[in-house]
Design a protein around this nucleic acid. Structure first.
Lengths: 219, 219
DNA sequence: ATATAGATATCGTGT
DNA sequence: ACACGATGTCTATAT
């Protein structure tokens, strides 16, 4: 890894064109060949960059970084204030512990939060166009397809709509109702869902998890 | 901006939990308070980070970065190999050119490239499920909804379809035609659009910009 | 290999 | 401040 602090100007021509006027910045050259240009703000995102695979050519006062697609990043260097190299060795990698899958699992175990007397038919109910997250039966025995999302956006409503259309062609299941369940539902998604007769339910992850821990306490 | 090369271990607890085993990495502390942890690969993306506003507390062999929401990044330092500070001064900022906003703007000014005698009703025509990029009138006075994309994919066709369905419920506008305009249109998107009676138009950004400069030359 | 979906997305813009 | 769309989105998974 090479760290350079320099007064520089940067021009990118590729999927778009972009220009950075002369100023002091950090240039970060990684072992994978990538180059990124950082200012002293904007959190972790560089002002401009070139992703690997790409190749850096150094000339007097000018770096040219190019990739196979012909995209080009040109750094014009006016003054170099720092220049150092460091060998970092291998990276063991990040271990993540997510929340995503857990949400569907929790709701499957507590379908009564969607309605009194509801029961689960099955999780990941298979159809020709993909699995329905939850297939349920409501108190009156009617079938309900549930789409679970962490954040409910319009795409999720479209997905559920396709499932409902397909499921409602099956005379053994029809009529099938739809429920769109998410931790957050965007207003546009809500409008579209309700316009299509799909019920929207906002999930409270902590509350669902709370039910779990309550049960743990009880037994 | 502070640059530290160190053998360290990182633990994040926040919207998810994540762990980085002990290894040599770059720690980047910016003037905005943000902290990011970089390995020598993965292009410009850090392995882990904390976005501003947040606060760094330094103790012997341990950095704690916290934000208001209670998310926490803990860096355990085993060995410091480099530590330097740099004053970068103000950042003039990036100038971009060739993004979707420009395309929409250019097309709005030259709707006749879509058809002779066409005129613009308005840009960003508002509806309950979002704004229609361009609402136009064709030579015979019929209403046309135009969706502009840099890259035309299936989502864009779905989006336009929803607008058309909604607009066609308005007896003052109906019947409303659809045009899907993009620099590149993927084959699947084209098939779907044409199946739904939506016309596909490939936009030439340079040509549209050329019309602009031609006008400059003429007058 | 390509298509799909999620992201600690990030980043503007408009209300 | 919040909501929403675009992104040089990026990244990983499933087909």
């Amino acid at each position: 890894m090479r760290l350079v602090i320099a007064r520089c100007q940067v021009d990118y021509v590729g999927r778009l064109t972009a220009h950075l006027p002369m100023a002091q910045r950090l240039l970060l050259v990684k072992a994978d060949g990538s180059v990124s240009v950082h200012s002293d703000d904007r959190a972790y995102k560089p002002l401009n960059w070139m992703s690997p695979p790409c190749w850096l050519t150094e000339e007097e006062g000018r770096w040219t970084v190019q990739n196979k697609a012909g995209e080009k990043l040109v750094v014009t260097l006016a003054e170099i204030l720092h220049d150092s190299k460091h060998e970092l060795g291998p990276e063991p990698g990040l271990v993540k512990d997510g929340v995503e899958a857990h949400l569907q699992e929790l709701l499957a175990e507590h379908v009564t939060t969607l309605g009194e007397g509801w029961s689960l038919v099955r999780r990941e109910y298979p159809t020709a166009i993909g699995p329905v997250d939850l297939l349920c039966r409501n108190a009156t025995g009617g079938t309900v397809a549930v789409e679970v999302k962490r954040r409910g956006e319009i795409d999720g409503v479209e997905q559920l709509t396709r499932y409902l259309e397909l499921l409602n062609r099956d005379p053994l299941l029809a009529p099938v109702q739809g429920v769109f369940a998410a931790q957050q539902i965007k207003p546009q998604a809500r409008v579209l869902a309700e316009d299509r007769g799909i019920r929207c339910v906002t999930l409270d992850y902590d509350a669902l998890r709370g039910i779990e821990s309550d049960e743990f306490r009880l037994f």
